[in-house]
């Protein structure tokens, strides 16, 4: 996150990012201020940036610095892009509550409009991954699930587990469960590589493949039935073993106690 890639340094990159950011924020701005639709896009954008800057100064600057340059408490946000802001604030990870091995997902503190304003402000600090549009992460092709599954097993399952249930990393860090995570946020996480997650930029994982992965994750965490019954957390043999001992052997021993017990004697009267 701290370093800019060669491509991001391209002189035209800023312009491209700005245009994309405009497109992304435009729609939301329309919802935010429908009466002012007539206003020029550029002023809408700058208004969002201004609002975002104010929000940033109150909520984020104590760690990330007034201009997002970073401090000992938080990394620089120059060049992280709007996607990173949308992910971090949109999943409640930011603002962070307390220091720890990893900032967890929690209740979202800002409205989507405010998040967009913050994202616009941070995006203005330097070019970076842009918040994806609905088309980018919404899949219509049913074949995408199986293609996404293959990609997921190559790129994601090692940390997030075969069913997206998450897993442990070193020293208290963890890959979170993907249960109930918005498609947009899954997409953004791949784009930006939040915290210790590596990024999967478009150069090595094209947009279409990210869409396929999102399709697989949404399918497997939401729509996939468990034909065999209780999924036991989809955590593999450990929970199966626990279940087998407690409910399997436990039930059998309970029955064995009944089988072997002496029948109640008739009380002498």
């Amino acid at each position: 996150m701290k370093k800019l890639s060669a491509r991001r340094r391209h002189p035209l990159a800023a312009l491209v990012v700005l245009l994309l950011a405009l497109a992304a924020t435009g729609g939301l701005y329309a919802a935010f201020a429908p009466a002012e639709k007539a206003q020029a896009d550029s002023s809408a954008q700058s208004l969002a940036i201004d609002e975002g800057k104010k929000l940033f100064a109150v909520g984020c600057s104590s760690c990330h610095g007034l201009n997002g340059q970073g401090s000992s408490d938080g990394p620089s946000l120059v060049g992280v892009g709007s996607a990173a802001v949308d992910f971090q604030v949109g999943t409640g990870r930011m603002p962070a509550q307390q220091p720890g091995a990893q900032v967890p997902r929690k209740k979202v503190a800002y409205s989507q409009t405010e998040i967009d304003q913050l994202a616009a402000f941070v995006a203005s600090l330097g070019p970076g991954p842009v918040t994806p549009t609905k088309d980018q992460y919404t899949s219509t092709d049913p074949n995408n699930v199986s293609k996404g599954g293959e990609l997921f097993r190559t790129n994601c399952a090692q940390c997030h587990n075969f069913a997206g249930q998450g897993g442990a990393l070193t020293r208290g860090k963890f890959a979170p469960s993907l249960d109930g995570v918005d498609a947009k946020h899954i997409y953004e996480a791949m784009q930006t590589g939040p915290q210790n997650m590596p990024s999967f930029p478009d150069t090595t994982m094209p947009e279409e493949q990210k869409k396929q992965i999102v399709a697989f994750v949404r399918h497997t965490t939401n729509d996939e039935p468990n034909p065999g019954g209780l999924a036991l957390g989809s955590l593999g043999p450990v929970t199966e073993g626990l279940f087998g001992w407690i409910f399997g052997l436990g039930a059998l021993i309970a029955v064995a106690i009944w089988v072997a017990a002496h029948t109640t004697k008739a009380k002498k009267s």
């Binding site: 890639s5 491509r7 190559t154 590596p198 990024s199 999967f200 930029p201 090595t204």
Partner: peptide
């Protein structure tokens, strides 16, 4: 060859912080 795209890669395709197989 990139496992995802089945295409060769240039060095600049691999960003800092990214992971590719």
């Amino acid at each position: 060859i990139n496992m995802n795209t089945n295409q060769p890669m240039k060095a600049e395709d691999i960003e800092v912080g990214s992971l590719t197989f």
